[in-house]
Design a protein around this nucleic acid. Sequence first.
DNA 1: CATTCCATAGAACACGCTTACTGTCCGGAG
DNA 2: CTCCGGACAGTAAGCGTGTTCTATGGAATG
Lengths: 386, 386
Amino acid sequence: MNPTRAQALGSASHNSHQGVSRMRRQSTAADGPRRATVTDVARRAGVSTATVSRVMNRNYPVAEATRERVEAAMRELGYVVNAHARALAGASGRTVGIIVNELIDPFYAYIARGVEREAALGGRLCLVCCAQGDPQRELAFVELMHERRADAVIVVGGSVADHGYTSELARRARELDAGGSKLVLCGRPPLGEQAPTAAVEYDNEGGAFAITDHLLMQGHERILYLGGPPKLSTTRDRLAGHRRALELRGVTPDPELAQPGTFSRNFGYRRMAELLRDGLDFTAVFAANDIVAAGAAQALEEAGVRVPEDISLVGYDDIPVAQELRPRLTTVHVPLEEMGRQAVRLAVGGGDEDDWREPTTGALRLGTHIVVRDSVAPRSSRAIRM
Amino acid sequence: MNPTRAQALGSASHNSHQGVSRMRRQSTAADGPRRATVTDVARRAGVSTATVSRVMNRNYPVAEATRERVEAAMRELGYVVNAHARALAGASGRTVGIIVNELIDPFYAYIARGVEREAALGGRLCLVCCAQGDPQRELAFVELMHERRADAVIVVGGSVADHGYTSELARRARELDAGGSKLVLCGRPPLGEQAPTAAVEYDNEGGAFAITDHLLMQGHERILYLGGPPKLSTTRDRLAGHRRALELRGVTPDPELAQPGTFSRNFGYRRMAELLRDGLDFTAVFAANDIVAAGAAQALEEAGVRVPEDISLVGYDDIPVAQELRPRLTTVHVPLEEMGRQAVRLAVGGGDEDDWREPTTGALRLGTHIVVRDSVAPRSSRAIRM
DNA sequence: CATTCCATAGAACACGCTTACTGTCCGGAG
DNA sequence: CTCCGGACAGTAAGCGTGTTCTATGGAATG
């Protein structure tokens, strides 16, 4: 279990942390790091440790004079409470964990921001890490956060429907739950087999439906769906919405027009260039997300294809780049930051600790909506190239 | 000290965490969360707690049969080690803290990515929080991370030269240092008064010099410097490099052409629109960063000013948006991710714990270089508007 | 003046884990 | 046959705080 984890994280071969034998005990003289403890403060202030603790926590009457002496002692000693000891003694660690694929991807960055802000409101700190799309890494991080006794562990982003992975995650969910923490699924489907999790979703399928319909209304029927890992739940849902819209308008999906791949700009660029070269027939592009759209836009530009006059282009997520592209990108807005906030709310309750609404196994689905900008136009009558 | 902090973080009025009196002790029955402990595992496997610990840490010989029994017990009980207890018992908490202004700003996101990756290599987890440009918040977070005994606390981004703030941060640095942790300054000047810190800088002044010179070489002499908080060290350095370049080429800086403000897109957009309306005379714009450049580009576009034919535009940081703008933005590349990596290296040593190179008070300065794209052209002979 | 009560403060234990220090058992050397 | 060393395993002492439970002094009450 341990070696597996170390491996998953790319750590050299850490045995968690082999003792480094710091020659502890019997701190005679300069024994390396040594911080002031409650005991030190107590001695200096001429009181007991209990009193010091009470001064810090303000949960028990302490005479004004005593309080001041203690506070002075703390200041003079540069005392900083040890959160580990505090947590061990029963208090919550006041920490929430969040696991994303990639911090520099705005999709995750916005969610992370929501999580961080909501956590800070509750006086909590945030453990953040990047699984980089590797399920093993993700599981390893969940475990690491459980070890830290995070109040909640939030896993963000689509997931693959691998059975081994799912049941493994479900096990972690049960363990966390047994310890009073919560696993929160953010932007991915539930774990089935009634694992005790909370969940925040967004109407992914609905957004895809809406923007596809927007394209259909402009006369487009041959719509290229470009990018997104094919086995990812995110892609499945977007494609499902896309197809539902097509079928509702009576246009039968052409398999050739579904071109999944990855969520990268580079994929959007290259695949679009290839398809253009191959002369695939289509009048609009539904990029799996705005990043892919940015890549596609560049390929279109370099091929001399005008957007939206010759070809319409839409994305998904509505991250800032959508406003920088020219033409500005029509896309689907997802309430990313709010998802992050709700994720921590669901797990630890509102900042107000008093409303003891048992953070039950709740699920939440936020709405999406399309944002119309300049990258869509009615289907042009002439061929893409002449 | 406590109330101050709670206030700084916008927490309602958390007394850190008032007892919530969980009616502990005497766990008779369903006493709420209860996780398996080493003792439970030991009992189940029929060994002592010491042996269980040895199985986990692999730092002492344990008979194969015993090991297997212990591991089985751990599995059956769903045992997850308590990192708090472990840290308290002497081991490092295996945590590094990073404080940025804003997670969704790519400048910080890239640095955070470097920190996170390097930390993960050493089997460490990352505490991340956003100070949102508020020095008080920043100090509060440093303290919070110190409480958690982070191996290193990395503060990222420019700082204001306020004396009270500086000395307060220096005090935190000394306290951290006294405890064996390290405060790392990332992208900001040192603290003076020999505070025990490590530092990773980038050649900010040099980059500004280089890109200004690039503009000068194209014949531009009236260069507008746009954006960036005027009192921030980042702005000071960039302006210094900018001025040095001007003076070296014998053009005297015109105060009217220095228009600091903020680092936001919105500021770039609005201020640029105003200056255009007011008819300020300039042929090139040096935006304080790429975000501001994006805003300025939009204002220019809306005013019908062509870039680079009528006016040249450059940015700073080389974040992804620089490649999406049209024309693509010429800017200064900063090795952001590498800065993050170096910051944790400096503080905790390379992933290899053995090279016991005392993580001394080191400083490091990484180079910057300009990236030429399409937003600069030789000065046009005709006036901006006719 | 004796009794009760409140406001404080101290002593001591529990939290879960690591590790120095002590064994114990066994095979092989003397 | 005794002695010694190696391979394991157990005992117990902390690590720094929170939180009982108990004690003390004086004010308030009868």
